[in-house]
Design a protein around this nucleic acid. Sequence first.
DNA 1: CCTACTTTGTGCGTACGTTCACAAAAGCCT
DNA 2: AGGCTTTTGTGAACGTACGCACAAAGTAGG
Lengths: 247, 247
Amino acid sequence: MATGRTERPAQRGRGIPEATVARLPLYLRALSALSERGVPTVSSEELAAAAGVNSAKLRKDLSYLGSYGTRGVGYDVEYLVYQISRELGLTQDWPVAIIGIGNLGHALANYGGFASRGFRVAALLDADRAVTGQRIAGMAVRHMDDLEQIVREDHVSIGVITTPAPAAQEVADRLVAAGITSILNFAPTVLSVPEGVDVRKVDLSIELQILAFHEQRKSGLDPVAGPVPARPSKPGERGDLPEVMPA
Amino acid sequence: MATGRTERPAQRGRGIPEATVARLPLYLRALSALSERGVPTVSSEELAAAAGVNSAKLRKDLSYLGSYGTRGVGYDVEYLVYQISRELGLTQDWPVAIIGIGNLGHALANYGGFASRGFRVAALLDADRAVTGQRIAGMAVRHMDDLEQIVREDHVSIGVITTPAPAAQEVADRLVAAGITSILNFAPTVLSVPEGVDVRKVDLSIELQILAFHEQRKSGLDPVAGPVPARPSKPGERGDLPEVMPA
DNA sequence: CCTACTTTGTGCGTACGTTCACAAAAGCCT
DNA sequence: AGGCTTTTGTGAACGTACGCACAAAGTAGG
Ligand SMILES: NC(=O)c1ccc[n+]([C@@H]2O[C@H](COP(=O)([O-])OP(=O)(O)OC[C@H]3O[C@@H](n4cnc5c(N)ncnc54)[C@H](O)[C@@H]3O)[C@@H](O)[C@H]2O)c1
Ligand SMILES: NC(=O)c1ccc[n+]([C@@H]2O[C@H](COP(=O)([O-])OP(=O)(O)OC[C@H]3O[C@@H](n4cnc5c(N)ncnc54)[C@H](O)[C@@H]3O)[C@@H](O)[C@H]2O)c1
């Protein structure tokens, strides 16, 4: 979707690596817990343990934000909470719209953890008139017809897609057309969106398959055979159990 | 949780990179769609487009499984479906237990996409006696007391944790003690488990925070200031708006 | 059988991410 | 005031991942 020349090859905006960005929320969560317990300062070693990462990695991650630690002491918990929140953009309000209020959309709508960090569920949307009008968690489900208006009036910037897979691309297109530039997709499909729009996916099925792969490695010895579909007919074909790894 | 010396530094088992394993389910999904449409063969270019990846990456990924393509033609769809399924361990049955049947557990229990690829919901479990005994998707919710027995008798190897965060570690410990070696965790906590147990997490809040970070980069110019907690009192302290990046 | 075309499989350069290890900085104790 | 301890911040080494580009391998057509 780009010429692949002098765009922004890796590091976006300033210079925080993507891998670091993905860990900042983890640190923030650990710090919030410490904050609630009234802990004033924390060392990189302790915080790293709480977040489940290597302490050198944590220090390097934090160093991208600035030099907020004190040698010999550690990091001031409150101050670091603020700095990470600010970097992640959590000091402002992010209205979220959930599209597709079925099983999963219901669960998300009822979920309290949403609101905790500046994410406010601004709208629930569905295409089915049997669903629209229902009230969930004190909020009326609106019809897709109102999408553009809602996005505009409520300044929605993040859309969460929980429709069936076949509808996801179409919904994404409408969200983008309405001006949304960040999408969290729960439907098991690859969404294609224009440059400048961020899509992240949550895919239960993929997670399970990755677990199954490792599980197979651990318990059994090697992939289990089954009814093998014949190799595409080729002249000079050998057996149909192609297991050896050619060096 | 390990000595950190001569364990298994990166590539597990044989030699499929973790990044590749994470993409195989994507290819499998695209291939399944092609298969249903009756497409007999597919080129790396087409399949890569369907999966949303670079074609060279796809070819390299597939090359780890063996040499299953035909030059000048492409890959036989059915055959590749089988080979990837086998490698991921999807030719065998993986009974799954869901622990914590609240909002999210309910949604997962009702979710059809679970069963599609060898993953069978073998049990629903909860600690609350007001929940146990209910029937969801034709299945009775069992009490946590029966956990060990269920894991043993139904050969459950994958546990899905959908309890509140404070209970997650305790539940994980029990799952591990019962013999489970793969956990999918939806609770926003870092789980610590012994070596040999795989944990993957699905964390809505983290995904949203990552989106917010990029959103802030796109729309606003730089992190937005707010009520700044004073820097930890230090001798020789300047103002309290630490924005500049020291070179 | 030979030529032209298509597409795989992979070597290689580059970018990115992780971890070790240590000097420099800061607090603390005597 | 000075030395000792703690802990940060980062240079450097290593390992993993990505994507280009191309030779090799195969098909198709005459
Ligand atoms: N339920 C789960 O636990 C679960 C788990 C993982 C993934 N998913 C995925 O999440 C998605 C939703 O799952 P679900 O179980 O909630 O499905 P569901 O069928 O219960 O709900 C889907 C909702 O989307 C609405 N919808 C359909 N087309 C629409 C459109 N074009 N615009 C707006 N709304 C539309 C439907 O009216 C319905 O209310 C699916 O893609 C599913 O694969 C679900
Ligand atoms: N609901 C969502 O959309 C959503 C989204 C993202 C993450 N989460 C996370 O998923 C988890 C579940 O969310 P929820 O909304 O379904 O919560 P919930 O409170 O509706 O359900 C939790 C269930 O777990 C059971 N439980 C509690 N302690 C238990 C224990 N020790 N053993 C077994 N069962 C126990 C409770 O009885 C209850 O039925 C939470 O950690 C939440 O943060 C939920």
